[in-house]
Each structure stands twice: as structure tokens, then as C-alpha cells.
Amino acid sequence: MNTNAVRTGVRYLLLTLFAIPWIVVPFWLLIVNSLKTEGDSSVLSLAWPKHFNGGANYRTVIEQGSYFLGLRNSALMAVPTILAVLLLGSMAAWSYARSGSRPLRFAYYTSALSIVLPPAIVPTIYVLTRLGINGTQLGYMLVIAGTRLGVVVFLATGFVRTLPHDFEEAAQIDGANRWQIYWRIVLPMLTPVLFTSAVMLIISVWNDFYFALFLLRGSERATLPLTLYQFASTSTHGVSWNLVFAHVVLTSLPLVLVYAVLQRRVLGGLTEGGVTG
């Protein structure tokens, strides 16, 4: 038998052995216990449910855990914010990449720095209060946009710099205005880098708990992570693993479903998207 085949076999064996505690057990525990009765789930065993209670658990989460409210709030805030960030970020990136002007260069570096520097939450609330939008969806969306633009700006600026000017010049000669050049020429060429940015934005914005915790007031505005937290923290559900798990499953479902369809492109985009610059 050839040594390469043995080596590959050993590698797959080790990977599988590692995947069991790292992935299989946690997710199996999660799913299987979300289908059990409260009593059965309290022992946290990996056994298949003796008394199937999945229907009731998930119904409770949807009715008492404000699941659909959270889903709607998350979608209504995350989707427009991410689209706006991609649009405004790529517009700015085009300018930053094509301009040598000092103020724009300063703005570019500031945006790039905002990726690593931690946002200052207390003054952010102060600014929002002064603008009269503290605790509102609008305030939350603006802060998310302001703190996440850096990623798009950084990745897209690097990308535009590698693009030739020819297409833009040709369009200019053909009489296209600036907006048409951006919309018809530059934006389509940016698709790969914007896809990578979108993946990173969706993961971080959809799962955001930190800003939602500080900036969204009132349970009617809660996003999915907030509804999960409120549901799990209320004393009546504190130990009901079956219900907490059912909520975790439902909360994680949207992104996992999207990932199931697009996984190849997602992984490819993140690997080749030049996250490391």
C-alpha cells in the first residue's frame, strides 16, 4: 500500500476525531434536546428523545420568544443597512482609489483604522441622544453603517487600485456621466470583492448583540439575538434547555440555510477575497 494513501487516511481519521467533539457533539446536543420535554432535556444527554416534544417547544418559542418579531426586525434593519454600506462603501472606495487628494487619503486611512479600533459605545449613545434618535432603529442602523463601512472601503479600495482605467475612460469618451460610469462600469467589476464584503457584513451584522444591547430600546424593537437573550434570561426559561435550544436553532436557521445553498461561493469568497490584503 502506498504511503500517500495511508497518510491521507490518517489525516481524514484525525479530522473526523477532531470534528466529533468540536462540531458533531455540540450541534447534536442542541438539535436533539430542542425536541425533548423539559424534564428529559434537563439531563443534557445525547440520546434520541423518548417523548417527542419538538412541536410544542418550537411553538412556545415562536409564541413566547417573539421569534417572528425578532426575525422581522433583524431583516428590516440588517438588509437595508448592509446594502447601503456596500453601495456607499464602494462609491467611496472608487474615489479613494482614483484620487491622490490629501483629505480623501486621510478619510481612507480613518475608515481603514475603524476596522480595528473599538467603537466607543457611551459617546455613541450621547451622539444619538443629541440627534434625537437614541434607542431607535434608525440610530442603530446608522451606527452599524458607520462602524462597518471600513471593511468595505478597505477591501474595495484595494481592489479598485488593481483595475485598469481604460474602461472608465472609454465610457467617459462615450459620453457617460460619473454616476453611469460608477453604476455600469465600476460596480459590476467590484462584484467579487463586494460579495466577500457582504458575507463578512452579514455574519457580523446579523449576529450583532453588542450594539443591539446598548442601542435598541424596547422589546418591540428587538433583533433576533436580543429576543434569544431575553427569552433565555427570563427566569421561567432559565433552565428549560429544550426551549432555549429551540430558540437557538430557530435563530441560527436563517444564516445556516443561506450558507447551505451558497457554501461553495462563501468559502471561496472568503479564502480568495484577500481578507489579509
Binding site: L88, G89, M91, A92, W94, S95, Y96, L104, A107, T110, S111, S114, P119, T124, V127, L142, V143, A145, G146, T147, L149, G150, V153, R178, Y182
Partner: peptide, 14 residues
């Protein structure tokens, strides 16, 4: 083109 992004970053981050 850069202004909207600049405003957002400056008001809500910087």
C-alpha cells in the same frame, strides 16, 4: 461620491 461614507464614519465612529 465619498461624502456619504465619510459623514457616516465621522459622525458615528470618529
Amino acid at each position: 461620491f465619498a461624502l456619504p461614507a465619510i459623514c457616516l464614519v465621522f459622525v458615528f465612529f470618529v
